[in-house]
Amino acid sequence: MTDTATLAPSIRALTSVNDAHIWQLADVLIDCVEGGASVSFMLPLTRDRALAFWQRVGEGVARGERALLVAEDAQGIVGTVQLVIDQPENQPHRAEVSKMLVHRRARRQGIGALLMQAAERLAREAGKTLLVLDTSSAEAERLYARQGWTRVGVIPGFARLPGGEPCDTTYFYRSLG
């Protein structure tokens, strides 16, 4: 008998976002914020706010403005990353990586790396040659550096952690050309 909890998660792009996806994505977002991730939300993050956020993301996916990748295991969605494809007309060659989130129960299993690799593949398929992102997490910084991203610099006190404490933000880019 195979233990499904030990199977590698699958990564896929959602071409449409339904209520079940939104509910599971909200679980991941709430877990990350409660775990201290600086991802634009403050504590307490209510389920209604999390659901509304993912509804808006789903609308952006439907309009083709962004791609939404998810990592799933036997229990459902455990991670996600977005690729903001719709950029100003003088920047058609680039995309922004946004909201790379992994539920705490699924961390340290390579899910972040798999999500980033899938985002890069999707960006290449969309004709993008440059990706950018920002992060406030030292753990995420290590992930991006291992994936070949170039650290540009740090803005001290740029954002706040979910509990209100200021945190630095580090910017990265990756050339796909």
Score class of each variant (00 low, 15 high):
residue 168 D to I: 10
residue 17 V to M: 04
residue 104 R to I: 03
residue 39 V to E: 08
residue 44 P to W: 07
residue 19 D to C: 02
residue 138 A to L: 14
residue 48 D to T: 11
residue 172 F to C: 01
residue 99 K to R: 15
residue 114 L to N: 13
residue 19 D to W: 02
residue 43 L to D: 05
residue 11 I to S: 11
residue 41 F to R: 02
residue 62 A to F: 07
residue 37 A to L: 15
residue 82 Q to P: 04
residue 32 C to I: 05
residue 160 R to I: 14
residue 48 D to Y: 05
residue 43 L to K: 07
residue 26 A to E: 03
residue 175 S to I: 07
residue 39 V to G: 02
residue 108 R to E: 14
residue 116 M to D: 14
residue 177 G to R: 15
residue 32 C to G: 07
residue 78 V to Y: 11
residue 32 C to P: 00
residue 31 D to H: 06
residue 114 L to G: 13
residue 159 A to K: 11
residue 116 M to E: 14
residue 66 R to H: 07
residue 75 Q to Y: 06
residue 172 F to K: 01
residue 2 T to M: 12
residue 61 V to N: 10
residue 9 P to V: 06
residue 67 A to G: 11
residue 127 G to E: 04
residue 46 T to E: 14
residue 53 F to P: 00
residue 41 F to H: 04
residue 54 W to H: 11
residue 100 M to P: 11
residue 123 A to G: 06
residue 40 S to C: 09
residue 43 L to Q: 13
residue 37 A to R: 01
residue 173 Y to E: 11
residue 87 Q to Y: 12
residue 170 T to Y: 03
residue 124 R to G: 07
residue 135 T to R: 03
residue 117 Q to L: 12
residue 114 L to A: 15
residue 85 I to R: 09
residue 19 D to R: 07
residue 47 R to Q: 06
residue 149 W to D: 00
residue 99 K to I: 11
residue 80 T to Y: 00
residue 83 L to Q: 03
residue 19 D to M: 05
residue 153 G to C: 03
residue 148 G to K: 01
residue 150 T to Y: 06
residue 18 N to Y: 09
residue 39 V to A: 06
residue 57 V to W: 01
residue 146 R to I: 13
residue 108 R to C: 12
